[in-house]
Design a binder for these strands. Structure first.
Lengths: 188, 188
DNA sequence: CGGTGGAGTATACGCCCGTTTACTAGCCGC
DNA sequence: GCGGCTAGTAAACGGGCGTATACTCCACCG
């Protein structure tokens, strides 16, 4: 039932490696299924580690979730470059999100969020600092926040739709449409 | 803590009324907090009814959720009228969704969805029949489904953003922007 | 080679979930 | 007035959860 012990022996007792396996398993599972649905026993099983180690290394389930979120803080270089081409960069990124879930556990967590209040607070904070604020900084005008919020909504909606209706291969025309969408969102 | 028993006596034994109280409480709570977070004990308490009655009248928690979804099947007259003005009607509806949660528990459930697979299936079905398909029917062109899907994504995203960042009073300029967004989504 | 510290384990605890069962009590026809 | 149907109740059941504790066993050091 375990695929790791096939190497004709037990795994070496490596605290850091075990911790990393747990973290990685949590990253995947939390991102795919959300906070509440995933149990620490699932994570431990996926990481081929003991349940108690989750508590030992991360304090609690929420602590583990937090550690996952800490893992990959930025959205990449999406916001580098000139503001002119920002809508198209956003559109290309969003098109990629239509096609498949993001690698980043943060974005997945943000897309899915969770009903647990504590986790919601964390996800909210991340959404603001990692998505909304970077967009705002590229905008002028008094209602920059509202416009950035609308663009953020499109991001969230793309993820929500993919999760509910399955992935969708975007065509070049879709990227054009999405570019127009983001331009409409961000237009002063 | 109860406002009904103040009338110096017990409530009359009215099966239909009790059933309706439970249904109404479930409507509110499911819509506000999602499927998993809400417990049948919460619902029973809100309905001032016994927990066992939930099981008796609706079979199970999932059955109750299903009954809630059955309650309000349509999205209203959003899709009536000429296709020309559809983007603006969608925009006005979406603007309303920025401002406050929908009255319809269905849309709230669709916005929030749930991690439980059975509920997800129901929500997915509803999203398709109540939102996606009506939009598709108003579109021409080979990739009508993709375009409708994008508009659906905007809807979901608006709700997700409001839930995470709080309500936002839309300005007339926002409605214009949203109209442009939906036009961009639906453009052939 | 004996012992010691820490990685990993097995298991139990307390809690709350959805659900079920055995019961109580009010309304109806007779 | 009084059974009998039934709305409503109380309490428990089994299970899964997150967490805590006591333990085993291996590697390394003297």
């Amino acid at each position: 039932m375990d695929a790791q012990a096939t190497e004709a022996g037990a795994r070496p007792r490596d605290r850091e490696a075990t911790r990393e396996r747990i973290l990685q398993a949590a990253r995947t599972l939390f991102g795919e299924h959300g906070y509440e649905t995933v149990t620490v026993r699932m994570i431990a099983a996926a990481a081929e580690a003991n349940v108690a180690l989750v508590g030992r290394y991360f304090g609690s389930k929420a602590g583990l979730f937090d550690a996952v979120l800490q893992g990959e803080p930025t959205l990449g270089n999406l916001f580098e470059g000139d503001a002119e081409a920002l809508p198209r960069r956003l559109a290309e990124y969003a098109a990629e999100r239509m096609r498949r879930p993001p690698d980043s556990p943060i974005l997945r967590a943000l897309e899915r969020s969770a009903a647990h209040p504590e986790v919601r607070a964390v996800a909210r904070e991340r959404l603001i600092t990692a998505v909304l604020n970077p967009i705002v900084e590229h905008l002028d005008g008094p209602d920059a926040l509202v416009r950035a919020r609308m663009a953020t909504a499109v991001f969230l909606g793309i993820g929500a739709t993919r999760r509910r209706l399955g992935p969708q291969e975007p065509t070049p025309a879709d990227v054009d449409r999405l570019t127009a969408v983001f331009e409409a969102c961000l237009a002063g």
